[in-house]
């Protein structure tokens, strides 16, 4: 009960913070001197990208804690799953918003830039992890935790190789300079920080809510099993009685 109340407070706080972010991002913050209103997309793009990486990091840590025998609790598995789900949504959002922003600023929808490409590979890497999680079954928690750690080990290698690829072949590319948006306006940088903060709250709230749902699903599965055993046992019990 107390937990639910706390989650309700967190939900309320998140809503207020998001409303404030919306107000600042769309109305109060000035348009960028070079990019105009397109720069406002950054107030969604930057938090989404940050959360994607945070979420995958949390998934890896929670998976490691699940694998470590002393800290093994179902809650870590739930956290890993909840965080990865939010992470995949954020990664998809990062790519989508990045493309929408890139079209007026760069010209093409997509640019083979290191961070963008790494994020795209990451998206598919964790889609695979979520597909694996959906399967469940015996020993699924341990299997999922190992898979999450393997994916996490792969991330730096993907990043490094893609980085090398793009810098070796596109040296002096104009796009890398144009990637940078120099935020000097204090109102704009405040809005950006507010957006990062409020979306992080949203991430925490989503994780908590999703974890509780996963816990209930586990409980349901156990109840189903108990009921099935009871149904199998009951007829013989009446016969013998």
């Amino acid at each position: 009960m107390i937990e639910r109340l706390r989650s309700a407070w967190l939900g309320a706080l998140t809503s207020v913070a998001l409303a404030a972010t919306l107000l600042f991002a769309l109305v109060i913050a000035p348009p960028d001197s070079v990019q105009g209103d397109a720069a406002r997309l950054l107030y969604l793009h930057v938090p989404a990208a940050w959360l994607a990486y945070l979420a995958f990091f949390v998934t890896a840590v929670a998976s490691a804690l699940y694998l470590w025998p002393r800290t093994r609790r179902p809650a870590w598995d739930h956290l890993a799953g909840a965080s990865a789900e939010v992470g995949v949504i954020c990664t998809g959002l990062t790519l989508f918003v990045g493309s929408v922003w890139g079209k007026p600023i760069w010209g093409p929808w997509w640019e083979w830039e290191a961070r963008l490409t790494t994020t795209a590979v990451l998206f598919f890497l964790y889609l695979g992890y979520l597909a694996l999680r959906r399967l469940g079954g015996r020993g699924a928690e341990r299997r999922n935790a190992i898979a999450a750690l393997i994916a996490f080990v792969d991330v730096p290698i993907v990043h490094f190789s893609v980085n090398w690829w793009t810098t070796l072949h596109q040296e002096g590319s104009v796009f890398n300079d144009r990637m940078q948006v120099s935020i000097t306006d204090p109102l704009m940088s405040f809005t950006l920080w507010l957006a990062v903060g409020s979306f992080t709250l949203l991430y925490v709230w989503c994780c908590i809510t999703r974890m509780r749902l996963l816990e209930l699903e586990d409980g349901q599965a156990e109840r189903d099993l108990a009921r099935a055993i009871e149904a199998r046992v009951a007829p013989t019990a009446t016969v013998s009685a």
């Binding site: 890497l125 597909a131 399967l135 190992i146 898979a147 792969d154 290698i157």
Partner: peptide, 23 residues
């Protein structure tokens, strides 16, 4: 081996392997 015991292994393995071996 991760997908070995799973019914959907034929479809799951490519999705797991291809992004991982992108480098």
């Amino acid at each position: 081996v991760l997908a070995a015991g799973l019914r959907v292994r034929e479809t799951l393995v490519p999705l797991l392997v291809l992004p991982a071996v992108a480098p």
